[in-house]
């Protein structure tokens, strides 16, 4: 059923302009502003000093990794209900972008942990949970790579994504109780005003850039799927 949908869809537009570039450009502008403010304008943090500035680039990465995985979850569920191929591409795109942000998050966290906690890695709940989260979604991507049949691959990806996502909260609570001490999630109410603004600025920058990434990755998946499903031309010419 979905093969027909793909075949009858209009051919990819040749124009180089897509809506997501506007979003991406906005994200880039905000990112330059936000990162500059984070580095040089915002005041140093009371306890952590200059090192506290890592917050402005670390926390948005954490938020947006979660947002990307949430997008993947929603499209995976929608795919299970509708079977539309485009939703499968979106899941693939969102999982990949989420995994990328998750790796970034872990590296930043490691850099943050060294001066504040004195170690590169500690079995802190949030660190541990995000490492496990990364592993689960890398598993999803690996599963995708191991299956050739597009329909089967789509279903399995969706199922694995749903399971990986619903497991996040329970993983988080389990490791929190396992190594039970960490400062609670910072929310705007507990962060001083000038810091909230910079944090928000960076969060929106990350959000728009993530949208651009997912949209571009979606188009890549679309192109690849079309290349895959194109009729085997050389064989036809030979007969």
């Amino acid at each position: 059923m979905s093969t027909e949908a793909v075949a009858s869809a209009p051919a990819p537009t040749k124009s180089r302009f897509h809506w997501e570039h506007l979003v991406g450009l906005l994200g880039l502008v905000l990112l330059v502003a936000g990162q500059y403010m984070g580095l040089f304008v915002a005041p140093p943090e009371r306890m952590m000093g200059e090192v506290g500035r890592i917050l402005y680039t670390h926390v948005p990465a954490a938020w947006l990794a979660m947002v990307a995985f949430t997008v993947a979850f929603v499209t995976a569920v929608a795919h299970l209900f509708t079977g539309r191929r485009g939703l499968d591409w979106a899941t693939e795109a969102a999982v990949e972008v989420g995994a990328m942000l998750n790796v970034l998050l872990l590296i930043q966290g490691s850099i943050f942990a060294r001066p504040t906690w004195g170690v590169w890695w500690t079995w802190d709940p949030r660190l541990t949970a995000s490492a496990i989260m990364l592993l689960t979604f890398v598993g999803v991507l690996m599963l995708r790579g191991a299956v050739r049949d597009p329909d089967r691959r789509a279903t399995w990806t969706s199922v694995a994504t749903v399971l990986a996502y619903v497991n996040i909260p329970i993983t988080y609570f389990s490791v929190k109780w396992w190594r039970s001490l960490h400062q609670i999630q910072s929310s705007p109410e507990t962060v001083a005003d000038p810091m909230v603004f910079v944090l928000r600025l960076n969060a929106f920058a990350f959000l728009f850039i993530m949208i651009w990434f997912i949209a571009r990755r979606w188009r890549l998946a679309q192109t690849l799927a079309r290349a895959d499903e194109a009729p085997p031309l050389p064989a036809q010419e030979a007969t």
């Binding site: 496990i132 989260m133 592993l135 689960t136 890398v138 598993g139 999803v140 690996m142 599963l143 191991a146 694995a160 399971l163 990986a164 497991n167 329970i170 993983t171 609570f173 389990s174 490791v175």
Partner: peptide, 12 residues
């Protein structure tokens, strides 16, 4: 593939 998918999932 099985351990890769299963292990992180059953961490809790």
């Amino acid at each position: 593939l099985l351990p890769l998918l299963l292990f992180p999932l059953v961490v809790p």
